[in-house]
Design a protein around this nucleic acid. Structure first.
Lengths: 196, 196
DNA sequence: CGTCTATTTGAATGTACTCAAAAGCGGTGG
DNA sequence: CCACCGCTTTTGAGTACATTCAAATAGACG
């Protein structure tokens, strides 16, 4: 495996609470996957065969609706997790697409190894259950607030949460995430810049 | 306790998988709460002291944003669960409001009893973890799809999922749920009815 | 430099919004 | 039984903002 991101090891040590030996043991179960810019990690219809940690790079997760329109659900950069948990846990087809926007390095824990790890390290299982719950609560909050917010507010929110994105990816992806057209985002930015 | 909804008992029997004795034991831990139309079950800032099952009636859960605008998150009718799990599990203040739109009867499992039940009946614990996960996945899917959908699609979706609502509550609540103004919903309905 | 892609700008259109007022509906009390 | 009241829904007119389509400009990269 490639050199894991420092925060990956820190998570295992501090948040999960594993000993150095346990970490070495666990690390042995992970494999590295490189995904080149523009390539897909998975597509709708695939079944997710592993949980994935973004070691570096950037992945966009999106969905395509009945009318063929795509909408970005989230961006995963360094130290994020990417995948479709439902597809992974139940080994059923996903409805999402995951595409690299930069050359990306993923750390994968395959399905079998995931279950072995959960058995062997109860702390890892707890960590995982906890992560699901936290994601749930965060998602609920984001959803509730985003419903009342204007595109402008959502834009400013994203600027706060993931400022690095604007330096690395074309902004029509940002527009797709915000649920507006690239032209609208362009005009929105001009308005915010205060040039009438 | 009042007569529980038949589907409540069925859930305990079939989904949770408890024996008749266990059910009797568990039922003893629940208490009934009546909430009159227009009254609040909880408000932002409160800490949820119980998990709540809607035995009959209807509750709207909503949020008020920075600009003081309210937005309905969901409607809970018979055989739904209502509350803020995050607030309940971590005993911290909620950001939501829950108000009865009809005289409503709730079945409550208070915080202490909830934990006793989880210890005494491992199956109940499993049931609960499962419920959280399923809610999470359902929420994600709803969110992803709602982002691309027009108000019209969301309206038709609600018609399919909770048709009874339209017979019981004022439609400006539906509008708030859809994220549009009452006037817009009125016009939307006229368009759908096909009267130019 | 030339090509491809991304961003910006313009003009016309559409849809939801605000504000205002009218019409519909349900319940209460005379 | 009817008149009145409060609340809900509908309708109208004008406004704001995102969309579409089209074209011009700017950037990135071989």
């Amino acid at each position: 495996m490639v050199q894991p991101h420092p925060r990956f090891l820190e998570t295992l040590r501090v948040t999960v609470g594993l000993s150095e030996e346990e970490i070495q043991d666990l690390l042995g179960m992970w494999v590295t996957l490189s995904v080149k810019k523009k390539e897909h990690f998975f597509r709708a219809g695939d079944t997710c065969k592993a949980t994935a940690y973004v070691n570096n790079g950037c992945i966009r997760r999106y969905i395509i609706n009945d009318q063929g329109k795509e909408s970005i659900v989230n961006f995963a950069t360094e130290d994020w997790w990417i995948g479709d948990l439902e597809s992974f846990l139940f080994q059923k087809p996903t409805i999402y697409y995951a595409q690299a926007l930069e050359d990306t390095e993923l750390l994968l824990l395959p399905f079998r190894e995931f279950h072995i790890a959960q058995e062997r390290f109860p702390k890892y299982k707890e960590f995982h259950v906890d992560k699901v719950q936290k994601s749930y609560f965060a998602t609920l909050k984001r959803m509730s607030l985003s419903k009342t917010g204007s595109p402008e507010e959502k834009y400013l929110q994203l600027c706060k949460e993931q400022p690095s994105l604007f330096q690395r990816i074309p902004q029509h992806y940002i527009a797709s995430y915000l649920g507006i057209e690239p032209e609208s985002l362009s005009r929105l930015r001009r308005r915010l810049a205060g040039k009438p």
